[in-house]
Write a protein that binds this DNA or RNA. Structure first.
Length: 791
DNA sequence: TCATCAGGAATTTTT
DNA sequence: TTCCTGATGA
């Protein structure tokens, strides 16, 4: 142990770490809890620890698993790691909970009772799938609102409860469970899984298969979890499968989190997991990262003072060496209009003072508040960007294209079938579809399989549709991903439709963007590539029915995920940027929730009014109020240099004027860190207030502009910017490999005879695309698949 | 099949 | 107010 510590001292990796960070990075291989305050260098600690573990030879790349919540965080970790390590880190098990579960299920698809090319439903797919179940059961959609039923099902899954496990005390719940059961059947039949299912399915697989479980337990020596305070019950249980508490196996589970930044209880996050972890794993080492490298003193004082009012905390206090900085500016506005106007003035003054607009963030509690601010910004010509619009892969035209692509892989995907069967229109109406659904239900088959049962014109049109899908599938055999998508866009009629549509130009651009995204994906992921730099056996566990993570081949046949399936998976797991017009120097507008994890030089927290922030729905119970306070804590700690907070006497909400009292949070901030810009205790309706508002409203032609501002700026154009792909990462293409030749026949022990379409890669990485006719076109890893040339 | 209208609901959200 | 859904009529 000492030698390790000695080696540590000399490693350049560990330079410039503070004592707590150093302790976290070099913590012994045992369960540990890192309480990482806002701006305390958490990501740096996580990545440095991984690099240090590898550098000191304590673990091999295949023995590390690091889990995050968002793709962004995972990417950040990978990027930083790749600068610290001499090999390609892509193949390491670093990703989001859902991403890793996907990887795991792809490897063990048979054990998981899933088709190899299973598809993933995003939130809206899930809702429409639930809706179909409710319709099929002839239930009242008023009583069983699809979205809410979806939440119920997700909630059950997050508690690891299958329909048979749910205890129903009332009729409503019993029905809900029935829907849940039918929904499960439907998903299974269609070969699709929702997000919660990804987690639950892989949890159950580990729970029910000791051999697999033990394999992974032996493999992963170091497991690191980011944002541990956001884990739900199932995610914690999932982690325990990989590293059971008290096993004495020498595994290290390192949980990094901040209980004060737990703001997702409403979607199932359990802060309590932190305390449970500490207890169940008998954690000896709790390391607090309290040194803050982000904000000035006044800002931290405010954050510390506020959060100290919470009763349920593990306890920590942020400190800085940066000095006090400016006090927090406080502004009371007569109305939400006036508040927006004040923001404009402040922003203009900050910008004049040399601050980039993108370093200024306006935060609010709920999305509805952005409207007034947006129109004020619009009218004064200040560029701005709103977070939280539609993401790239969620756009209607993109989803349509993806649905066609999914149908090529799996025609039994009824969700996709219904999405595009009559788009563009093909004379298939609601009545025909109703008949089709009845027929399918009666025989327990998919819609695609039931089209022949429909008589008349509707039936003929349906057959024409399935013929279209089938012929496109044949047509695209052996094509590259790019060519497949181009072909699908053409034959589906989507391109034609948007070309003639009066405002289809933007949608056409997005479809173009989809092709680019696919192209970038193929290059970047180095599709089919094994984890570069990792020994094969570390990546591909040699379990009987196992393939391995990512695109590593199935152990039996050597088959690997086709680029199309991989891309479709990518599209549902990563919906793309949800921020419009990245890159422009624009003021950033977002909810406090979406600001988590970000930082800005100047931050405005707006709408600090009782009922809004803290929100009225959260104030009824103690826990709710504490979460609102944590939300405020998150908001405050986003600011590096300048923080301003404001509230309004009156606010237009749901078409009605509301009279507000300032938020209780004002009383929970240290008076000495506040600088009031307006006189205190000014009552609403004062002469000043009324005049200010009237004058301002008279002075601007606001009403007509609101819509224009939104349409132009709210995520209509996707920010889909892929970094350029270095030439070194592009695929080597060869014509010949061990007697195999492109265009010639090959024989596979399981799939029989086929035609070789493509050869890629070298050595252990070499792979081939073969058209096996009846068995379809498959990608095979030549290191596993036994292919022999035939004449 | 599509456009229009009425009615109801309106924290927070990643995967 | 504004957005979304579902029903209705051409």
């Amino acid at each position: 142990m000492n030698s390790v510590a000695d080696a540590a001292q000399h490693s350049p990796l560990l330079k410039n770490l503070n004592p707590e960070q150093l302790a976290a990075v070099t913590a012994a291989a045992e369960p540990a809890l890192i309480l990482a305050g806002a701006g305390s260098g958490k990501t740096r600690v996580l990545t440095t620890r991984i690099a240090w573990l590898l550098q000191t030879g304590q673990v091999s790349p295949g023995g590390v698993m690091a889990v995050t919540f968002t793709n962004k965080a995972a990417k950040e970790m990978l990027t930083r790691l790749s600068t610290m390590l001499p090999f390609n880190v892509r193949g390491m098990w670093i990703g989001t909970f859902h991403g890793l579960c996907n990887r795991f299920l792809r490897a063990h698809w048979k054990l998981a009772h899933l088709p190899q090319a299973f598809q993933i439903l995003d939130a809206s797919d899930t809702t429409s799938a639930v809706k179909r179940v409710i319709k099929a059961m002839n239930l009242d959609e008023e009583r069983f609102v699809p979205k809410q039923v979806g939440w119920f099902i997700a909630g059950c899954k997050e508690d690891a409860q299958r329909p048979g496990d749910v205890v129903a005390h009332d009729e409503q719940t019993r029905k809900l469970v029935e829907i849940y059961a039918n929904y499960e059947d439907q998903c299974q039949r269609e070969g699709v899984v929702d997000f919660a299912e990804l987690m639950l399915r892989s949890y159950e697989l580990l729970r029910d298969n000791p051999a697999v479980r033990e394999h992974y337990q032996a493999r992963f020596r170091h497991i690191l979890v980011d944002e541990f305070q956001d884990t739900n019950k199932l995610q914690y249980a999932w982690l325990k499968m990989f590293a059971p508490p008290g096993s004495g196996s020498g595994q290290s589970l390192l949980a990094v989190g901040d209980d004060d930044q737990s703001i997702y209880a409403f979607r199932g996050a359990r802060v309590g997991n932190m305390a449970d972890f500490e207890r169940e794993y008998r954690v000896k080492k709790v390391i607090k990262l309290e040194q803050n490298y982000r904000s000035f003193g006044h800002i931290l004082d405010a954050a510390n003072e506020l959060i100290s009012r919470n009763t349920q905390r593990l306890g920590k206090t942020l400190r800085t060496d940066a000095g006090q900085g400016d006090p927090i500016r406080v502004h009371e506005a007569p109305s939400d209009f006036a508040e927006a106007q004040w923001l404009i003035e402040e922003i203009q003054s900050l910008h004049r003072g040399g601050l980039d607009r993108q370093e200024i963030a306006i935060l609010y509690r709920s999305n509805a508040q952005s409207r007034v601010i947006e129109s004020a910004l619009f009218n004064s010509g200040i560029p701005y960007r709103v977070y939280g619009g539609l993401r790239f892969f969620e756009r209607a035209e993109v989803k349509h294209a993806l649905a066609y692509l999914r149908l090529l892989e799996n025609p039994n995907d009824d969700t996709s079938f219904l999405r595009v069967v009559n788009f563009p229109t093909r004379g298939i109406g609601a009545k025909t579809l109703e008949n089709l659904q009845d027929a399918a239900k009666a025989t327990g088959r998919s819609l695609y399989q039931s089209v022949s049962a429909i008589p008349g014109k509707g039936g003929a049109n349906l057959v024409a549709f399935t013929n279209l899908i089938d012929s496109t599938r044949n047509l695209t055999q052996g094509m590259t991903l790019r060519e497949i998508i181009e072909q699908v866009l053409e034959t589906s009629g989507l391109l034609e439709f948007y070309r003639t549509d009066k405002d289809g130009a933007e949608r056409l651009e997005n479809l173009d963007e989809l092709i680019n995204a696919a192209e970038a994906f193929v290059m970047q992921e180095g599709f089919g590539k094994n984890a570069v730099g990792l020994p094969v056996d570390e990546v591909a566990p040699t379990l009987t029915a196992a393939g391995a993570p990512g695109a590593v081949p199935d152990a039996e046949t050597g088959e690997i995920m086709s680029p199309l399936v991989a891309f479709l998976t990518h599209a549902s797991l990563e919906a793309g940027d949800n921020q419009a017009q990245a890159g422009q120097d624009a003021v950033q507008l977002m909810t406090v929730h979406s600001a988590k994890g970000l930082e800005f030089d100047a931050v405005f927290i707006t709408g600090l009014e009782e009922g809004l922030f803290p929100h009225e729905n959260a104030m009824s119970d103690h826990d709710g109020l504490e979460e609102e306070r944590r939300l405020m804590y998150v908001a405050i700690t986003r600011a590096r240099k300048k923080l301003s907070i404001s509230f309004c006497q009156t606010r237009m909400l749901h078409g009605q004027t509301r009279y507000n009292v300032k938020s209780r949070f004002f009383d929970e901030l240290p008076e000495t860190s506040l600088k009031w810009l307006t006189p205190r205790n000014q009552g609403f309706g004062s002469g000043f207030a009324r005049e200010y508002q009237q004058a301002w409203e008279r002075g601007s032609g606001l009403k007509g502009m609101v819509g224009a501002g939104r349409v132009a700026d709210r995520g209509q154009r996707a920010a889909w910017v892929e970094p350029p792909v270095p030439a070194s990462m592009k695929q080597k293409v060869s014509e010949e490999h061990g007697g195999l030749r492109v265009g010639k026949g090959v024989f596979h022990t399981k799939f029989g005879e086929g035609v070789l379409l493509t050869l890629e890669g070298t050595g252990a990485d070499a792979r081939a695309q073969v058209n096996f006719g009846r068995h379809g076109t498959k990608w095979l890893a030549l290191s596993v698949a036994k292919l022999t040339p035939i004449d």
